[in-house]
Amino acid sequence: MSVLVYVEQVEGKFKKSVFEAVSYAKAVADQQNTNLTAISIGNVAESELKTLGQYGASRVLNVGSEQLQQFVNQAYASVIAEAAQKEGAAIVVLSNSFSGKGLAPRIAVKLRAGLADGVTSLPKTDNGFTVTRTAFSGKAFATVSLTSAVKVISLSPNAFGVKESPADAIIENFTPDVKESDFSAVVKDIVRATDKVSLPDAEIVVSGGRGLKGPENWGMIEELAALLGAATACSKPVSDADWRPHSEHVGQTGIAISPNLYIAIGISGAIQHLAGVSSSKVIVVINKDPEAPFFKVADYGIVGDAFEVVPKLIEAVKAHKA
């Protein structure tokens, strides 16, 4: 019996969401009085693998196989399930990233494991095994009972935080039994804007709506975001009109996010928009209409014209940083 956490690498590095998943998995392992093992797939330097020890991984299984350099969910699921079986892992944890979403369900089927995804809190074990996850696009939380012997938990970004519990991680090579049939999907190309903060795991998000009038006015949104180390987002009509890419659209039919701070500028706060952002910890709304529904769910607000308020806010943030 142990806990296994899958640590997703991007170009050989781990991101904050991975350290969150390891911190969470360590807390789960402590609950179960067992140790935490991590599994990494792809080319990652030993020094990077060692950092997982800081968050409580006592062993790291390193799968460096040439064939597995690129993420193919079918093949990665086979490797992780194989490791879980060899380790006798009762609980498999991973982060609910884009790749995690394609991976967790396959692992669950292989292990005949109950799967809870978008999980926001530690399991409760006083009455079976239950976890809380988001449902109805953030309009509710559901308590899910996992009744299978093996369980898979996919953790929501920004829900648990990073917690240090230093251990010395022992790195071991793990050679999986790879099947040719797992590789019928082939990755042809990866395009990644490395200079931008990625939206799903951003701690701060600056978002613009139709109130900004046109794509030419996004300069100030990007400037504010860059100053705050934030990702940029938008409402649906904005991406529908191609002012911004679809990948920035948040809400019920876009990405659901839960940053520490969400700044909504020129967005009315329609129910479908709120669905994807209401689990943000702090919400700031800037809107010229004092009756905009968004103010009802905001923590802080400024009633005013974005074209006057945002430049002043940029100055204020600059002054604060100086």
């Binding site: 494991a113 449902a135 953030g138 308590t143 923590d299």
Partner: peptide, 22 residues
């Protein structure tokens, strides 16, 4: 059956907004 939903909760309502002059 491997999982089931036991119950739901709606998020706690937020306090009233603190407005700051423009």
């Amino acid at each position: 059956q491997l999982s089931s939903i036991l119950h739901f909760e709606t998020p706690p309502p937020r306090g009233t907004v603190k407005l700051v002059p423009a």
